[in-house]
Design a protein around this nucleic acid. Structure first.
Lengths: 193, 193, 193, 193
DNA sequence: CATGAATGAGTCTTCATTCAT
DNA sequence: CATGAATGAAGACTCATTCAT
């Protein structure tokens, strides 16, 4: 499991894998070390504590997800098509990195996350809020508290991936339908009475 | 903290409270017992294990939520108005029993839930799936895998409550907007292109 | 399981049964009470502690065994025939009261036996030692420390019953052979070189 | 108490000592660890459970005893003299390792012994049974179920050592007498009527 | 007198963290 | 730098004993 990036990367990889299999709270550090092919002592050379390791894993993947999402905000595109791209990115990320997605969104981290990690988490939110706010100004996204709308959309997305993880089979057509439905959460045209 | 219902009820109350504050996994049984005003030994007279206690709490509230949701399926009402009632029930439940809601929907239970508890959980889902399926047949709800649509809606609702719990302030108008947006996830009229 | 003798007897019966099934140390008093058909509280009305109960059971059966053994010392009989009678009594007792025998001889009691119980135990020994001493004087039993000879014989008998309990099948012929062999431990005629 | 053999050996030594003083069932693992001069956590590095530790101690000494007994079966020797050697070995083992002997033969192990330990125990029996069977064929040992005869002899031996442990003083002459008496259990010449 | 709920000290076991080699 | 043995505090669970009803 030792990646090119060296011991630290191997530890982050191993931690993600086992945290996904068992949960952060239920995973002894010895298991992480063993999976990474190093000793516990070595793990503690790279991370001062289990919490630090958990935070590092969390931050690493939250940032990766955030960057991929942010990259979709191409200038000039319509909000609907930008949303479509973001949706696909999100679903694609979950498909490519199921362990990372499950760890990030399906587990609880409150008990150990530090400020930096929370910030990483918030910044995704901010990107999304900004997108919604601008879309509202442009008259393409329905009115309403942007934070609230983001919460609804993000929640729907997480619900979708969670269901998929729980065994729900989704074809490309299903995903297209899911994207359309989720966009309806924001679409100004769905607001009409 | 001893409720009128007796020791068992006091334990269920205490367990819900501390599981919400700290998480099931991070809560020693001694803390539950203390909160209920009894000794550890007494807790074990009423529940054979910590897992059994966790399951009892989970089932109790999942059933209460399920019953309230199911009660909204009044005959003759339009799907839109039934959905509105369910939305209000869900949000109301979360407001009245924030600890219960957080415990049920914001925590992980995979590691200890038994079959009965999972069944209680599934039955809510089934109610919702049935609602969607019938709505589709009636031409009021958009097409698409009902399980997927339910996952989206349930996810959105959870996201909403989670945000509220995270500090987001929501007025009645906000909630009305949230309801409208969430209904758009299902509304056949949002499907038109 | 309630015997005619009343609650106390029922408790002694129940205790013997469960102590045999599980061991004194591994049996909660609640199990004894339940088996006797009474509550724990009641058990404590009849016996001040678990130890007292254990001692009472031990003493009761040690005495019964002792009395039956002592009864075989009929005057005028030869030592060989008296031994034969004792052997049969011992084996018969073990067959009739397997639980009692196993409890008495196959379990450890050191940790809780009180003086009275130890006395009851010793008196069987004394009877046997007296038998051996007299037999030696009469020239029918081999020379040697009587306590030692008794230890050998008693040990052999316990070994026999233990083996039987462990699954060894013994016919009447086998038992006759066992009796002959055991008597050889004492028989003056086996001493000849 | 840390022996040269390392921590594991120290734990086995300590366990034997305290199991003898108090009984396996009445000894907390903390006491074993303390006696061995290590912490509880360390004990669990070497033995996965208290049961595993108990089995390890049992097996270790049962094997040592078995090996010493088996070593006495020198070819060509008469059955009487082989028996004499085994008798001395047995008594010698009990004198040299009183704690081990008491633990092995004077305690109950049924509740926790695993298959391997039971096997170790059985193999001593098998050696003895084989000795008796061959002696019968050679016309030197009395007839009768070999398992039964072994049970009698082994029981007598255990009774002897138990009595010694209980305070009985035995001179070399006494032991010689005990050996003679015990051999009479098997001696063909004691069978004659 | 009987009941059985309540108590809490005591047991086994786990695991984050340290540190001698 | 890496190793992994050692630590000990903490957690789940049991059970002899008490006492209010």
């Amino acid at each position: 499991m030792t990646r090119a990036g060296g011991t630290r990367a191997a530890l982050l990889d191993a931690a993600l894998a086992v945290f996904d299999e068992r949960t952060y709270g239920d995973t002894p550090v010895a298991v992480v070390a063993e999976r990474a092919g190093v000793s516990v002592g070595t793990l503690y050379r790279y991370f001062p504590s289990k919490e630090a390791l958990g935070n590092a894993v969390y931050r690493l993947w939250k940032q990766r997800l955030g960057e991929r999402l942010a990259a979709e905000r191409s200038a000039g595109a319509s909000y609907a098509s930008t949303f479509a791209a973001m949706f696909r990115t999100f679903v694609g990320f979950a498909a490519e990195h199921p362990a990372a997605f499950a760890f990030l969104e399906l587990q609880q981290h409150e008990s150990y996350l530090d400020v930096d990690s929370r910030t990483a988490s918030t910044s995704i939110d901010e990107t999304a809020v900004q997108f919604v706010t601008e879309g509202q100004k442009a008259g393409e996204i329905r009115s309403g508290d942007p934070h609230m709308l983001v919460a609804l959309v993000y929640g729907a997305l997480v619900g979708l991936i969670k269901a998929r993880r729980g065994g729900l089979r989704l074809t490309d057509d299903d995903l297209a339908a899911a994207q359309a439905a989720t966009w309806a959460l924001l679409d100004i045209r769905s607001q009409a009475e």
